[in-house]
Design a protein around this nucleic acid. Sequence first.
DNA 1: GCCAACGTTGGC
DNA 2: GCCAACGTTGGC
Length: 151
Amino acid sequence: MAYWLMKSEPDVYNIDTLRKNSCEMWGKSVRNYQARNMIRDDMKIGDGIFFYQSNCKDIGILGIAKVASKPYPDPTQFDKNSHYFDEKSSKDDPRWFSIDVEFVRKFSRTITLAEIKAEKTLEGMILTRRGNRLSITPVDENHWQKILSLE
DNA sequence: GCCAACGTTGGC
DNA sequence: GCCAACGTTGGC
């Protein structure tokens, strides 16, 4: 069992939509190889996911989801009308992958980025590393537990 | 809206 | 295979 943190921009997708729909395909906009490798190779059913929102007023972790499927080829890479169409990808050898993500719960409050940065024991989280731009990052179990305790 | 940091692209 | 130019991310 591993833990992850997924970024989302609330304008594009927010946690209330995930709560309403319960389960959603995730990764159809991920076009970064490092993130792709994590989706394809490392994420397992049942893994915990922090739902983080960026590029907005209330930056931070809003709640928890979990991995609900094995990785599968992201359908948008084959869709000519999609913004995420990739002509270099083929169905025999798909380049990009998605997984299903299931809503678990929303925190009673947002654990803000400022709090996370201020917390000594959370030093070293990939999230707070300078220049980090990955939409998915692994989370250490002790960091996971610590953030839960902050709620 | 600014800008630093990074990934990707493409000419050579 | 190098590297400059460009596009994107994302905190502030």
